[in-house]
Nucleic acid binder design. Structure first.
Lengths: 289, 289
DNA sequence: CCCGATCGATACCCTGGCGGTATGGACGCA
DNA sequence: TGCGTCCATACCGCCAGGGTATCGATCGGG
């Protein structure tokens, strides 16, 4: 079959997300009937039913679920194509690096000067975005590089270079039953409320949704939740919380990530600077491929 | 800006590849003027010049080169979205595994029975394609899994699991000046003709283009080329060629690859079967994510 | 030096795809 | 059974996008 137009993919994604033709049409700024027809056309040409509709409800078929995920990827790729071309075409080249607050564990302050020494260096703009937004920004071409946090962030579609791994600590309110322990294991935390982060779906975790570290610290201080965080988060710790090492928590890592198959010398140089700083000056030859 | 339609991306790719509006239009089955206008519109909306045209020649701007690469990725993603949805929607589920001739080093014969024991197993179809075609088939959704050959195949965009690594041997015609050596190093081969493979651009290598192993063996026997190949290729060796270990050649590896973020249980089970067979029965818990 | 060939851009026309409005029909609920 | 909801169908009108004819620039050959 002939490939669907990006418009059709966007229509389908809207309907699949809303599971409601009326609302989807509204979101797309159009009327409902043409939207219904567009989806019908799409299904007919693909030869697959994507949606199950009764006059009361719309649901995804298995093929529809696959197509939703794939369509999102495809739309990201289209958006990325435009953004990357625009960025490489316009004005002076610059690198856009995106991170979440505290997402660099203090490395960036040493990376930037190291990077500027590289002959391939260009101007760097650092954007601090909301938690979970970085990978989307990298995926759709708004950013050139991102500091991600393994194992939470989804690194698929990116090349990554690990910068440092750190153990995790439990952050507890002062006076918590475990606050005086020298160390603990994950099972000690059974039954505690753990926070949920936007963009991260952990099965079971149903504690309060937190948006940033200070919000989280506030909730911890109020004994609403406890959290298990990378060690460097200690620097955000307020006076009224305590940190206790968690011996069996998976170690967390900070990665620098960039789009796969990137050929940019500026990106390669930045990655080089990252690994040099992170690994104590040992040159890593094949960084940046 | 509003996203370009896939049709526009296809137009641009055609022009960028042909570097000639007339030929590109012909390839697309349309007249030249609407194609010129479509590209102009695209450039105007993107706000970037993609092509440099004089009335005699067309060339890519740097932004155009970036956009060409990104557009190909995006078109692949769109095609993959359709194919994967179709496959998961139609008929009985089946897994399509793609490999090049001899690309499994004999593993597949043991993997398939192991896979069938898995409760998540579905029917498997194995397609043997031309060299260098596998990653394209995996990328655009025609295949579910592929056996790739590191470090030659481009694995970006895929999740991979290495199955086995092997040392490389030089394949020489009987009577070659190095044929009697017990082992050699790469620099011993300086000045020899090395074959080129379709889809693999190695800087410098400018020997004859070979399409498959038997063709290559033929050329070796005729003293047209020598080749450095993974050890398992010995089994293709004809009587009139000899194999000599190359001590410092990078070791080659066979990987099983599948599209990132795949959630299919059937794919996960297949990968599980692969790792079990390859690693001698040691279960690998997180295979298939 | 001019003429013809080449090739992309422009001018103009026309069709069909796509979006809009009005309405139908199925289903759930009170 | 009447009403509200929600997707599908019918029908209409516009313009985006494709076609043809032609222009203008540039290069090469006689």
């Amino acid at each position: 079959m002939d490939a669907p137009e990006t418009r059709e993919l966007a229509y389908f994604v809207a309907v699949a997300e809303e599971l409601h033709f009326g609302r989807a049409a509204e979101r797309l700024g159009m009327a409902q009937p043409p939207l219904s027809r567009a989806i019908q056309r799409l299904e007919r040409r693909m030869g697959v039913a994507l949606l199950e509709r009764t006059s009361r409800a719309v649901s995804l078929t298995p093929a529809g679920a696959v197509f939703l995920a794939e369509s999102r990827k495809a739309l990201d790729a289209v958006a990325a194509a435009v953004r990357r071309a625009q960025r490489s075409g316009r004005e002076s080249p610059r690198l856009l690096v995106v991170m979440k607050p505290e997402g660099d564990a203090g490395l960036l302050g040493r990376i930037l000067p190291a990077y500027r020494l590289d002959p391939d260096a260009v101007e760097v703009e650092v954007v601090v975005c909301g938690i979970g937004e970085q990978s989307a920004m990298l995926r759709d071409g708004r950013a050139d590089l991102a500091f991600l946090h393994g194992p939470w962030d989804d690194v698929s579609g990116f090349d990554v270079e690990p910068l440092l791994t750190e153990d995790q600590v439990a952050v507890l309110p002062r006076g918590h039953r475990l606050a005086d322990r020298a160390a603990l294991v994950l099972s000690d935390l059974d039954g505690e409320q753990l926070p949920r982060w936007p963009g991260v779906d952990v099965a079971g975790a149903s504690g309060p949704l937190v948006r940033d570290a200070s919000q989280l610290m506030q909730l911890i201080a109020l004994s609403q939740v406890v959290a298990v965080l990378p060690e460097t988060m200690r620097r955000n710790a307020r006076a009224d919380v305590v940190c206790v090492p968690v011996l069996d928590a998976p170690s967390s890592s900070i990665l620098v990530a960039w789009p796969e198959r990137t050929r940019s010398r500026a990106v390669a140089a930045f990655v080089r600077a990252c690994t040099e700083v992170a690994h104590g000056g040992r040159a890593v030859e094949n960084a940046g491929r």
